[in-house]
Design a protein around this nucleic acid. Structure first.
Length: 774
RNA sequence: GCUCGGGUGGUGGAAUGGUAUACACACAGGACUUAAAAUCCUGCGCCGCAAGGCUUGCGAGUUCGAGUCUCGCCCCGAGCACCA
């Protein structure tokens, strides 16, 4: 009996699959396209993380299943290699990011090859390839032309370790998404994308896409739509003249509480703005404003929720009842949300209550009115506010796509002419972040010294690079047109393949990548560059993989290196084990001991293929039923990504085969091989082609069909209860009538002894269950 | 604080309101072996000699019947966090 040599078998099929183009769909002419996409990796660290492997295998299994169901599956792969993540790693090991990219690329592609996924290798892409980022820059220009990319000075997130600004989405609980350092605020002029323009659309679109519910909820909360009213309060004094001509406008979701207003609170930023236009206040108030503003910059945003504040010295008039209320300046009022001012209603808002208690402001007992009346009485205006802020896209780092803009003293900001793209990232020796709020590219005169595209005068090229999340916000479009020199994506191909049919990735990208991608897709549609506004029809988040009950981390030294496991056990074992750990959407606990179960299973499958008599005919009706049931179960489970239960169904099938070896023949082996092909593509192929002597790859042969007449047993176990307590299990022919089951049950001695008093009621469920109430 | 997931044997985990603990790991006993590993067979929720009883974080409820539905708690994980 030939022993199974996973190394030989796996590398043999890798070569053949490539040569036979098993996983290369005809992108132009495919009849039945299915775009199966997985989030591409950051190729930065020591190699591919087993967590990536887990996600990729889970995605690949779905793709292989769809391919066998007759779809032309497109399953591309690439590297999200630009960005802080890769650059930080290069810095850490003392290599130049541009050199390191080539090393990481080779290693990653080797590992991705080893795992045996059905990737369309001809379409691979890397975001740091000038042929790719040329189009990233082109996209930036399209947004700029439509007024969706703009510069603005504001208090932005700054990571003191990565030495760059960050988008709001990249600050996780007050810390830098990449390095975990506490983020501070800095007042800087930066490039933004106007994602807020699409806030409502981003929210509404969620209703029509089939995505993991938790991701939709996270996006909904992040967008944070609030409906309410803006109400103007007349001020008694702002500029020193007691003219009453000035107003403060507040936003509230509770106009019904208008009569309970006991104070107005404005943000320090708004107060500063008033100062700048001539507001006269005491020195004490000025000091408070200065301090509050500087605290905003340095304060740890995660702690210290203690509210501070000061009475400004002026009052405002409640338009609903003409009552005078004091105007306070407080740090609990955010500058970037609503109008930067709130009406204080301590009776109905916890924060207002806390503030009122601290500063002894009186709580009003005024009654509520209806929302409509509140708005009417206060002459307010119905408005909607979003929590979402514009996407800050510029970064003061080296390893990214240069922002394709040029600044001319005379003509202002000018986009780089499209014919001049790409703006190549130069190879500069000193690529370290500077910390001066400027990119290291600002030290490269050859790079930034350019002519103005408009007046040809002396101008300066933008030296910031764009956020990595811009690279990854459109990569799925490029995959299908990766060879196109003329356009970012080919119209005909795009029409055929998009939107993506199935996207699989991590839920940690809920309000990062997954939000940005949707935004840009909507922009592309509006620019008539595509014909769809939601990029992914279906998205499923996979769970987190842990090791022996703990999170994997380098510091704990419990990070799994997939290479070792592939070497020792083979890719098929690793794939199948990863899927068997637990529900794919919930993750699982990787324990070395558990691998044995899968190793044994695949060994037994191999032994079966070596020892059975291929000429055997299956004349065993029970085995036929098990076989058909398994086909049904695995088919349904693969559709739902319930991988752990399909593996267990395959195990049950193997157990049955082994117990009925005389009935297991060519057909049975072929069905087993096909059902396990998505999980263990190498061994399945070996069995299908070398033992069963098929010419074509198993991965492009039709998925087994089940006979719906054969998924039901001929005889079923019926649970018999007396007063809802189980007393017996009886075997009955399938579809037995109530009267027959009743009779059989009553004749059962376990039952008859409980039926001493007359039966009051019988509850019967066909083929399952009968309950006598006495 | 708010919003999502979860809580089932020694462990990972199965269960359209209808036999809770499938499948696997670990463990124990046996076979094979000079021996070990591998492999194969048997057992394996708890109490009990048994008959039987108990068991899905805790407490109520709906139902003939609840791991599953409803309400109130407790614990764990993830996300958001002064968004007015």
């Amino acid at each position: 009996m030939a022993k199974y040599n996973h190394k030989k078998v796996e590398s043999k099929w890798h070569k053949k699959w490539l040569a036979e183009k098993v996983y290369e769909p005809d992108l132009k002419n495919a009849k039945n396209p299915f775009y199966n996409l997985m989030m591409f990796p950051y190729p930065s660290a020591e190699g591919l993380h087993v967590g990536n492997m887990y996600a990729f295998v889970g995605s690949d299994i779905h793709g292989r299943f769809k391919r066998m169901q007759g779809f032309n599956v497109f399953e591309p792969i690439g590297l999200d290699g630009f960005g802080i993540h890769s650059e930080n790693y290069a810095l850490k090991i003392g290599e130049h990011p541009m050199d390191q990219a080539r090393v990481s690329e080779k290693n990653f592609y080797r590992q991705l090859q080893m795992i045996g996924n059905g990737f369309a290798w001809n379409e691979k892409l890397e975001t740091y390839d000038p042929e790719y980022y040329k189009w990233t820059q082109w996209i930036f220009i399209q947004l700029y032309k439509k007024g969706l990319a703009y510069r603005k000075k504001s208090a932005v997130n700054w990571c003191p370790s990565c030495l760059t600004v960050l988008a709001d989405e990249q600050v996780i609980s007050g810390e830098c998404e990449r390095c975990g350092t506490k983020v501070i605020k800095k007042e800087l002029e930066q490039w933004f994308f106007r994602i807020t323009k699409y806030a409502d659309k981003l929210l509404k679109g969620l209703d029509k896409i089939d995505w993991s519910e938790k991701v939709k909820i996270a996006q909904k909360n992040w967008i944070g739509k609030s409906e309410g009213a803006s109400i103007k309060f007349r001020l008694t004094d702002v500029t020193g003249q007691k003219d009453g001509k000035h107003f403060v406008e507040v936003f509230t979701t509770r106009p019904d509480t208008i009569f309970g207003v006991t104070f107005i609170a404005i943000s320090p930023e708004k107060a500063k703005f008033w100062l700048d236009i001539g507001w006269q206040v005491s020195e004490e108030v000025k000091e408070y404003i200065t301090k509050a503003l500087s605290d905003r910059v340095t304060r740890d945003q995660n702690q210290d929720k203690d509210k501070s504040g000061i009475f400004s010295g002026i009052s405002a008039i409640n338009p609903a009842n003409n009552e005078k209320v004091p105007v306070w300046i407080s740090d609990y009022v955010l500058a970037g949300y609503g109008t930067g001012a709130v009406m204080g209603v301590p009776a109905h808002d916890e924060r207002d209550l806390e503030f009122a208690n601290k500063f002894k402001l009186a709580i009003s007992g005024a009654p509520l009115v209806s929302i409509e009346e509140g708005i009417k009485k206060s002459v307010g205006k119905k408005t909607t506010q979003f929590r979402l802020r514009d996407w800050l896209v510029s970064r003061q780092r080296y390893w990214g796509a240069p922002i394709p803009m040029i600044h001319c003293e005379k003509c202002g900001w000018q986009p780089v002419p499209e014919k001049d793209l790409p703006v190549r990232l130069p190879y500069i020796k000193n690529f370290r972040p500077t910390g001066t709020s400027e990119s290291p590219l600002a030290a490269d005169e050859k790079f930034f010294k350019v002519k103005c595209p408009k007046c040809e005068g002396v101008a300066r090229r933008e030296t910031d690079v764009s956020d990595t999340f811009l690279d990854s916000a459109w990569y799925y479009l490029r995959y299908a047109s990766v060879k196109d020199k003329k356009y970012a994506w080919d119209q005909a191909v795009t029409k055929k393949w998009f939107p993506v049919d199935m996207y699989i990735g991590g839920a940690e990208h809920s309000v990062l990548h997954l939000l940005y991608v949707r935004f840009l897709a909507m922009v592309f549609k509006d620019l008539r560059l595509t014909n769809f506004d939601e990029p992914f029809k279906k998205f499923r988040a996979h769970g987190l993989l842990i090791k022996d009950g703990a999170k994997m981390s380098k510091s704990k030294g419990n990070v799994i290196n997939p290479d070792e496991y592939i070497k020792n056990y083979g890719a098929d074992v690793l794939r199948m084990y990863l899927m068997f750990l637990g529900p794919f959407d919930q993750g699982g606990d990787f324990r070395d001991g558990g691998i044995k179960g899968i190793t044994r299973f695949l060994d037994r499958v191999w032994n079966l293929s070596q020892t059975l008599n291929l000429k055997s005919q299956n004349d065993n009706p029970k085995l036929q039923i098990v076989l058909n049931k398994t086909i049904k179960k695995v088919t349904e489970d693969l559709e739902n990504l319930s991988y752990n239960t399909s593996v267990s169904a395959l195990m049950v099938l193997l157990n049955e085969f082994e117990a009925n070896m005389e009935s297991v023949g060519k057909n049975e082996l072929e069905v087993l091989a096909k059902l396990m092909a998505p999980f263990a593509p190498h061994m399945s192929e070996e069995i299908f082609r070398e033992i069963l002597k098929n010419k074509k790859s198993i991965h492009i042969t039709p998925w087994p069909k089940f006979d719906s007449k054969l998924v039901k047993d001929k005889e079923v176990d019926i649970v018999v209860q007396v007063n809802a307590k189980m007393r017996a299990v009886i075997k009955m022919p399938v579809d037995s009538l109530q009267k027959d089951v009743e009779e059989a049950a009553k004749n059962n001695e376990n039952i008859s002894k409980y039926l001493t008093s007359p039966v009051k009621k019988v509850i019967f469920v066909k083929d399952k269950f009968i309950n006598f109430i006495v």
